[in-house]
Amino acid sequence: MIIGIAAQEFKSHFKTPMAWVLLAVLQIILGYIFLTQVETFDLMQVKLASIEGAPGLTDIIVTPLFSNAAIILLLVTPLLTMRVICEERRNKTLTLLLAAPISNMQIIIGKYLGTLTLLWLIVMLIALMPLSLLMGGELDIGKYLANVLALILLVAAFTATGIFLSTIASHPTIAAMGTFGILLILWLFNISKTISDQPNELVEYLSLLNHYQNIQTGLINSADILYFFLFVATFIVLSISCLNKQRLQK
């Protein structure tokens, strides 16, 4: 049943022009960033060749591409998740869904996976770009895969937050603004590392960017991976609980 809901949700994104326009816009923006980085590397490579232990293609092109992609997806994800539950409620179709013989957990997880698959498709498109560099250079494949893994986990966290806000908000715009606000705050927690002499450990742990950057270096720490899993689990549990509450109020 979960797969059925996920497939339905995934298809529904592509039935509107919004997802296609979003894919095109993202491709143009990230493609431009990628090609600018390639040009920068091309100009720098003579200088880099003379430096011992100089950064390679992956450090100069791939890592900045994925860092920029994370910020752009932070802006895009709320637009994709805002309608998921909120729109169903506004169209009065949520009552039908709640009346169906499916649990709230199946509804939330199904809708979450449907939207996440679309975002993973975007990640795949981003991940394809650096592979074109293999035509004329060598990539640090381990670091490249770490960047892909980091973005996969990050969008999973973004989507879970978006689904939760879509469950509690009365209007899609409020859901989008709320998601953006929460994600931005969690993103900016990383600043404490540079502005404080002794950064707060809890604030540092909660920072999305901190864990994202750690994985990007190619150093896979169990704490960073589990942070994303626990982050997703927290928002999914909260979403299910909110939907349970709404079902009981009907």
Binding site: D42, Q45, A49, E52, P55, G56, T58, M135, E138, D140
Partner: peptide, 11 residues
């Protein structure tokens, strides 16, 4: 000093 991978790009 560690040598990095992919210090050249010939496109």
């Amino acid at each position: 000093l560690k040598t990095n991978i992919g210090t050249h790009l010939n496109l």
